[in-house]
Design a protein around this nucleic acid. Structure first.
Lengths: 246, 246
DNA sequence: CGGTGCGTTGACATTTATCAAACGCGGTGG
DNA sequence: CCACCGCGTTTGATAAATGTCAACGCACCG
């Protein structure tokens, strides 16, 4: 095993333990999974709607998104994924993909064969429980995005997304001091928010004018966390992190 | 065990087997689960955001919805649930509810204690796999709703929902002949679709004027399935049913 | 030096929300 | 039996939010 693979698996173990408890044996089983490390360019498809993948991704570096594209060409992103995430874990139980998985930035990822994962799950119910819980948290985030899409005004919606992405990155050590990477274009944000690029741009300017945030060169700075949270009625319960302090 | 309980569990076994295979032993284990049968009036809360439920629901009759309510009083429904569904199965692994579960119509349901479910899951990985898959299908439906919310016009969105609810009911034997129950108010539909009641009303009239559907007295009639599917770009892949023929 | 992609701006169009009122109909009590 | 009431639906007028289209600037990169 290469050292890159070993460190990828160590990261996976750490992430899973932040989701639920693992015994020593279970940790070991995860750490012994076979992985293939891959580097991908930005805006690159990983899995397409209709595919039947035979492996799961673990993000090591970079940002991915899951999305559907309509006949009109309109795209809706349903989730953004950062280091530690397993964005297509569901393919383990839903063989046919009902959406796309793409990179947004350059990505470093590990691929784990379904077969190997299934073996570990069968032998270690504790691992299964943590992975199941992980897919449930994923679903909870999608539900909350849905609430934003359906019932929040653009300003609150953008604010909500920024709060979420800051906290999620903070939880995996990628953010602190109310500052974090946000290396996505305004057009990508629009596809995630269900808004047009132009409107995203204007909302971001409004948030800046309100001295709440700045977003420059792929870096988000939150100048007033409290007010941003209040504005967007952000309640981190749905992230299901034990200590989601900011 | 009462006969109502026995028949509820028989129904549950049937539903689970439509989601994934169960061995004879596993079927038995499910059929032996303890259940409490409950009747609920319409518009009645079952579980609230913040609760820590100790049991899971199985819907036997009637309609439920999961939703969040914002400070402004706006409600977004993330899913509609019909007989056979287990709308709060996730509470098994996510102890704190991040949304509400309510009845829309009078409901007959079975409650299964978490503890009993956990025992069965621990003893029977096959049952765990089917339940996991069930939560993943649930998540897939939410993702598709998200796409509708973010990127579809109201007309297509309404059409999409009608197609989905017809097919889902057909799959559990509650619908046939392009006709099915839809016992929810236009205001509930609005909360599910992210639209105002008034707009839902107008869109339904448009669909009727196009000779696509009629919706009267809680009954939906689809007059031209093909055109409705085309209009709403409805692709049932996301329901992850093997034979979703109409 | 000239693309190309992204961010920004302005003018205008469209969709959808909001508000207010009326309507229909089943249920209920006089 | 009839009047009334409540709930859900329907309608019209108007407002607000957001989308679309077109153009421009600016930085990065070949």
């Amino acid at each position: 095993m290469t050292s890159a693979a070993a460190s990828a698996l160590a990261g996976l173990v750490r992430r899973l333990e932040s989701i639920g408890p693992l015994s020593a044996v279970e940790r070991r089983a995860v750490a012994d999974l076979p992985v293939a490390i891959r580097t991908l360019p930005p805006r690159c498809p990983i899995v397409r709607e209709g595919d039947r993948p035979s492996q799961c991704c673990v993000v090591l570096q970079g940002w991915l998104c899951r999305s559907n594209v309509l006949g009109s060409g309109k795209r809706q992103i349903h989730s953004l994924h950062i280091a530690g995430d397993m964005p297509d874990l569901q393919s383990l139980h839903l063989p046919v993909m009902d959406h796309n998985l793409d990179t947004l930035t350059p990505v470093l990822m590990a691929a784990i064969p379904h077969e190997a994962l299934r073996d570990v799950i069968a032998a270690h119910p504790g691992v299964a429980a943590v992975l199941w819980r992980s897919t449930l948290i994923d679903a909870a985030m999608v539900r909350q995005w849905m609430v934003c899409l359906g019932r929040r005004a653009a300003l609150e919606h953008v604010g909500h997304l920024l709060c979420e992405m800051y906290l999620r990155q903070q939880a995996v050590g990628l953010a602190s001091g109310f500052q974090c990477p946000l290396p996505v274009t305004q057009s990508d944000l629009g596809d995630a928010l269900g808004l047009s690029t132009v409107h995203v741009n204007r909302v971001l300017q409004t948030l800046r004018a309100m001295s709440l945030i700045t977003l420059q060169n792929g870096t988000l700075r939150i100048h007033d966390w409290e007010r941003l949270v209040a504005l967007s009625e952000f309640d981190p319960t749905y992230l299901h992190v034990e200590a989601a302090s900011a």
